[in-house]
């Protein structure tokens, strides 16, 4: 038998440190949330509401949930309003690896009437301000199939 031909690159001789290459991908299943991401391509903002008549909460969730956290009953899809206000905002100067947005992109959290959550997203145009009215825009042409397919612009 021959010795293996694939060698690890030596990062440092003393002390000995080697590089372990990683080049594979993960198959990620969105499962019950898949419809939300597909909805973005149809310019729809799909939220979820509990269908249990006995549930006392019945909030509108966005990000959506497949099952109600208050009664564990199945949820149904409901289109959320496509306008909201900026609850908070920031710009990340030193993002981590995998960051796909242009440098200087404002990150925002969005309050939407009737929705019990404050969706994290990004502002595609304009300068963010607390309480600023914004509307949703969708990346339907060349979708990334991630949450980045949703963005907001001043309303």
């Amino acid at each position: 038998m021959d010795w293996p031909t694939t060698a690890l690159e030596v990062f440092s001789e003393e002390p000995l440190v080697v590089k372990n290459p990683k080049t594979w991908y993960h198959i990620h299943s969105y499962g019950g949330w898949g419809k939300f991401f597909q909805g973005l391509q149809q310019q729809k903002l799909l939220a979820a509401r509990c269908t249990n008549p006995k549930c006392k909460e019945k909030r509108l969730w966005l990000p959506p949930r497949a099952d109600c956290p208050d009664c564990w009953h199945a949820m149904e899809w409901v289109e959320a309003p496509q306008v909201g206000t900026i609850y908070t905002h920031s710009v990340v100067t030193y993002p981590g690896e995998l960051f796909k947005l242009p440098p200087g992109t404002p990150l925002i959290s969005v309050e939407i009437d009737g929705v019990c959550t404050k969706l994290m997203s990004w502002l595609k145009e304009g300068k963010p301000k607390f309480g600023m009215k914004i509307k949703a825009v969708f990346n339907a042409k060349r979708p990334t199939h991630t949450i980045l397919d949703l963005a907001w612009v001043p309303a």
């Binding site: 990340v92 030193y94 981590g96 690896e97 925002i108 994290m120």
Partner: peptide, 30 residues
């Protein structure tokens, strides 16, 4: 930082910074 940000929600939040400081910055601003 990207690894640490995979301890945020990878479906709906990690992509928005891939950086925990960004998630804290949004809280800080508020």
């Amino acid at each position: 930082n990207s690894y640490i940000a995979s301890a945020a929600c990878k479906d709906f939040e990690s992509e928005l910074g891939w950086m925990y400081a960004a998630y804290y910055a949004l809280m800080a601003q508020r």
